[in-house]
């Protein structure tokens, strides 16, 4: 466990050095958040309640979603696996004494932790200063949100891990990783909140693992899930996390086998 904590910390520190990217990310997330907030306000002005969201919920949702771009890495894969496969360095990674998948998870959690502090807080605070946001007053809601966010990060990792590992077979990850990004952006509620999706599409989207990345933590934050509903939300996230991580382990075993047999 200590090893993985150290890996996370190292990843955290590595991202700390990319200051220019950080400032750029903060600026972009803020600017886009402001524009999207105006769009949502115009929608809610015409229909004051959609799917249980009022206008403050909708604007808060926008800034939450902007804040989650970084930690959930919805716009890019964020894992170095494809690059290391192409360079051949993956051979040493696969046969390290620590678990391969856990190694990358630890790495990704370090990256996500950095993202929250470096890229999420400032855009959200600016959003809160400029607009009327729905901020929870109960500290237990904040705590519940942090747990949902963490579980969402694990689901996000498990999904991106599968996409990245496809490089072992396809050599060029651009297709799979790109498609995964497109599907994730849409079904996580990053482009538009899932409450705006038409009936059947909305119901489908809420069952897919992508809902764990943005919509579900946002629902917890906004108090749309409380009491037992928070628990079922966690179960939903844990269920998908376990299923996807197991799929990842299976893929890892195949990949290792492939490296042993074919030498990469």
């Amino acid at each position: 466990m200590v090893v993985y904590a150290l890996i996370s910390r190292q990843a955290f520190r590595r991202y700390l050095t990319y200051r220019g990217a950080m400032v750029g990310g903060v600026l972009a997330n803020t600017v886009f958040g402001i524009i999207k907030a105006f769009i949502m306000m115009a929608v809610w002005r015409q229909r004051p309640s959609i799917g249980g969201y009022d206008v403050a919920d909708a604007v808060t949702y926008v800034f939450l979603a902007q804040a989650m771009i970084g930690p959930m890495s919805t716009l890019n894969n964020g894992l170095d696996i494809p690059a290391r496969i192409r360079s051949g360095d993956i051979g040493t990674d696969l046969f390290r004494p620590c678990d391969f998948q856990a190694y990358w998870l630890a790495n990704d959690l370090g990256r996500a932790a950095f993202s929250v502090l470096g890229r999420s807080v400032v855009p959200f605070v600016i959003g809160a200063l400029l607009f009327h946001l729905h901020l929870p007053t109960d500290p237990r809601v904040w705590a519940a949100f942090v747990v949902a966010l963490f579980l969402g990060t694990v689901v996000s990792f498990a999904l991106r891990y599968l996409a990245a590992m496809s490089t072992f077979w396809l050599l060029d990850e651009k297709g799979v990783v790109g498609m995964a990004t497109v599907v994730t952006s849409f079904f996580s509620g990053m482009i538009v909140p899932l409450v705006l999706f038409p009936g059947w599409l909305g119901q489908l989207a809420r069952l897919l693992p992508f809902a764990a990345l943005v919509q579900l933590p946002a629902d917890v934050f906004l108090g749309k899930r409380s009491g037992g509903a928070v628990g079922t939300g966690y179960l939903f996230e844990i269920g998908w996390a376990v299923a996807l991580l197991l799929a990842g382990r299976l893929v890892t075993r195949r990949a290792r086998h492939r490296v042993v047999v074919q030498g990469g």
Partner: peptide, 27 residues
């Protein structure tokens, strides 16, 4: 591959507009 990806990525935003207009008639 990259061309197909950027086609989808660019279409996604358009899809977002359609979803928004599923809820309201003017923006």
């Amino acid at each position: 591959l990259v061309m197909v990806n950027s086609l989808f990525m660019a279409s996604l935003e358009l899809l977002g507009i359609l979803v928004v207009f599923g809820n309201v008639s003017t923006l």
